[in-house]
């Protein structure tokens, strides 16, 4: 086994890229769950984003248009979830599961004639000579626009939830829906907003997968990434920066195991492919299981149906 063929710099850069899809999906789901909505349809919204983004990019020739199409597609699917659960009071768990199945099926249908096509490649952001710098150049200035967007997004979500009035209202609705209603907050409207944001983010996560990570369309391309994103939200105790950490961990171990397989490590590849899922869950469970009050992250009204009474 020749470990020296693994370049650590390249590993870090690709690790970040590998973590992007579940990061986007998880940060969107985090906002939805903070408002008290448990949307188990992340996988479905991701794959719809993946296929719509792919199709739009191929048809228009613009990967940016693809990302926006993915955003819209994810948001549209989540809007369906919102209508069913918030206005028609359907059960959130069942609706979310149905959404995933629906998304997987619909994406297969849409993507039928697009298998094997190569999408237009994503433009790199030019930092000029900065990216030529040794080490730092590759570490800081060698990514696509979405990676930088993700950094902005996590800070924005953290600021919105923790510092803004709107974020406070959103957390209040998720924490105690009846009290928020009694104080005059519009529970359903706030939740719809959070659901649609979650859907748009999941769509982008999916597009990252089909346009950048593995630039092609294959049926079932998300391969459970949506479920990992859901678990990530719980194990990160609903904290945005911990979501980043968990996503990096998942991306890192995914790449490490691929590299280990490539260099012919004497570990059964079955175990290696399991590793990212296992390591992420174990590590995050360990983090969230320690420290006083760590379990308090869970929004008090998460998954509860809301009926305005009186």
């Amino acid at each position: 086994m020749d470990l020296s063929s693994i370049n650590p710099l390249l590993l870090i850069a690709t690790m970040i890229a590998a973590s992007m899809p579940i990061f986007f999906a998880a940060i969107g789901e985090l906002v939805a769950e903070k408002s008290g909505v448990l949307n188990l349809g992340v996988e479905g919204m991701m794959i719809i984003g993946a296929v719509c983004g792919f199709v739009a990019a191929v048809e228009t020739g613009s990967p940016i248009a693809g990302v926006f199409a993915a955003m819209l597609a994810g948001a549209a699917l989540s809007l369906l979830f919102g209508l069913l659960t918030q206005l028609l009071h359907a059960n959130q768990v069942a609706t979310g599961l149905a959404l995933t199945l629906f998304g997987l099926g619909l994406s297969a249908l849409i993507g039928q004639s697009y298998a094997g096509i190569k999408p237009p490649s994503f433009p790199q952001i030019g930092f000029g000579t900065l990216s030529e710098l040794p080490v730092i150049g590759a570490l800081l200035f060698g990514y696509d626009a979405l990676v930088y967007a993700s950094a902005v997004l996590v800070v924005a979500v953290w600021w919105f939830l923790g510092r803004s009035r709107g974020g406070l209202a959103l957390r209040a609705v998720g924490e105690n829906q009846d009290a928020a209603h009694a104080l005059g907050y519009r529970v359903v409207a706030i939740r719809m907003g959070a659901i649609v944001f979650g859907g748009a983010c999941a769509g982008v996560g999916g597009a990252y997968l089909s346009l950048l990570r593995v630039p092609q369309w294959t049926e079932g391309a998300t391969a459970g990434a949506g479920w990992i994103a859901l678990a990530l939200v719980v194990f990160s105790s609903w904290k945005p920066f911990r979501v980043v950490l968990g996503a990096f961990l998942f991306g890192g171990v995914t790449l490490l195991q691929l590299n280990l397989q490539a260099v012919g490590a004497e570990i059964n590849p079955v175990y290696l492919s399991m590793a990212p899922y296992l390591v992420t869950i174990v590590a995050l469970a360990a983090i969230s299981g320690t420290g006083r009050g760590a379990h308090l992250g869970a929004p008090g009204s998460l998954g509860k149906p809301f009926h305005a009474s009186g």
């Binding site: 406070l168 957390r171 209040a172 924490e175 105690n176 104080l183 992250g297 008090g300």
Partner: peptide, 24 residues
Amino acid sequence: VFQHFSLFNALTVAENIALGMHRP
């Protein structure tokens, strides 16, 4: 002041108070 407190356990005192104010 409600009988069953309309408070949010996970939030701080100041956040709870801000939520019930017209223009905090």
